[in-house]
């Protein structure tokens, strides 16, 4: 169970894992996520389903190594290894309705999670404009995969090494300027990016949905740890979302709540890095011994 059937590294921080789970692949719908525990003492982390193959029976996750758990997984998850627990699909599936024209915006890590929706919109007959943003040219991934399903494809890089020189909001603005008939914008990425996209579309009155990423524990609606403020009402990101109306989301509150474990995260990371260093030293010593 939960065997990793493929591993790909897009950069030294972003990696892809393909997991064998036929029932999950069959049930997964765009916009949903899974909760993963990598080992028995691990924590539960939500990861958006970046792709699914119902015939092959696999589900794809694209992960950014930012903290102890994702760094550890980057080190230990190879083809053939297993995760301790993968459960889902969770969350309400994205509403793909009958739209004429949509813009799907993915920033950084958000590029992978926006793919299933983008593909679903295209398959439903909509005109799809894909906008993706990366820090620089080296970090770009899935360009061909996106182009296959986009009528227009806009790439932005922070340093201008490829495509539009600017943040992903620059690409979004370009799309809005050129198309006055956009039905919906879907934006996924770091909260600051989603907030910026919301502010970009607000003056134009374009319906904008975002996929929120609060800290979660169970993912099934029983703890309230992922609660977000949407239009003054309290919603749980895991069962009422993860998609919400971007113009109603209180992003400041989301950012505050996302930072509540920063000291603990730092402590966990330092401990793990220290253990890695010790392990490396031990390995080196063993190597020296054996070469003597």
């Amino acid at each position: 169970m939960f065997e990793i059937t493929a591993r790909e590294d897009f950069s030294d921080v972003t990696y892809l894992l393909e997991i064998e789970h036929p029932m999950l692949a069959k049930a997964a719908r765009p916009g949903q996520f899974v909760v993963v525990i990598s080992h028995e003492r691990g924590e539960r982390i939500p990861l958006t389903i970046a792709d699914f193959d119902r015939e092959k029976g696999t589900v794809t996750l694209v992960i950014q190594a930012v903290g102890k758990t994702t760094l550890e997984m980057q080190q230990s998850c190879e083809k053939g290894t297993r995760l301790f627990s993968v459960v889902g699909p969770m969350g309400l599936p994205t509403e793909i309705g009958e739209y004429g024209k949509v813009v799907c915006v993915g920033g950084g890590l958000g590029v992978a999670p926006v793919f299933p929706q983008l593909r679903a919109f295209k398959e439903s007959g909509a005109y799809v404009i894909g906008v993706v943003g990366f820090r620089n040219k080296e970090l770009i991934f899935w360009e061909d995969k996106f182009k296959e399903y986009c009528d227009e494809f806009i790439v932005c890089t922070d340093d201008g090494s490829y495509g539009i020189h600017g943040l992903v909001t620059a690409g979004l603005e370009k799309a809005i300027e050129e198309h006055s008939d956009i039905d919906e914008v879907l934006a996924i990425g770091p909260p600051i990016m989603m907030k910026a996209c919301a502010e970009t579309t607000r003056p134009h009155g374009v319906k904008t949905m975002v996929s929120l990423n609060p800290i979660m524990v169970d993912g099934t609606g029983m703890c309230g740890g992922c609660r977000v403020n949407v239009g003054g009402k309290m919603k749980f990101g895991c069962v009422d979302g993860p998609d919400f109306d971007a113009h109603k989301v209180d992003f400041d509150e989301l950012l505050l709540r996302l930072s509540r474990f920063v000291p603990k995260e730092k402590k966990a990371l330092e401990k793990w890095q220290k253990e890695c260093r010790i392990q490396q030293q031990a390995d080196r010593l063993v190597e020296q011994q054996t070469t003597h």
């Binding site: 003492r41 758990t69 474990f261 603990k264 966990a268 401990k271």
Partner: peptide, 10 residues
């Protein structure tokens, strides 16, 4: 048992 177990609690 944090940090032996990864889940934190403040």
């Amino acid at each position: 048992h944090f940090p032996e177990y990864d889940t934190p609690l403040n």
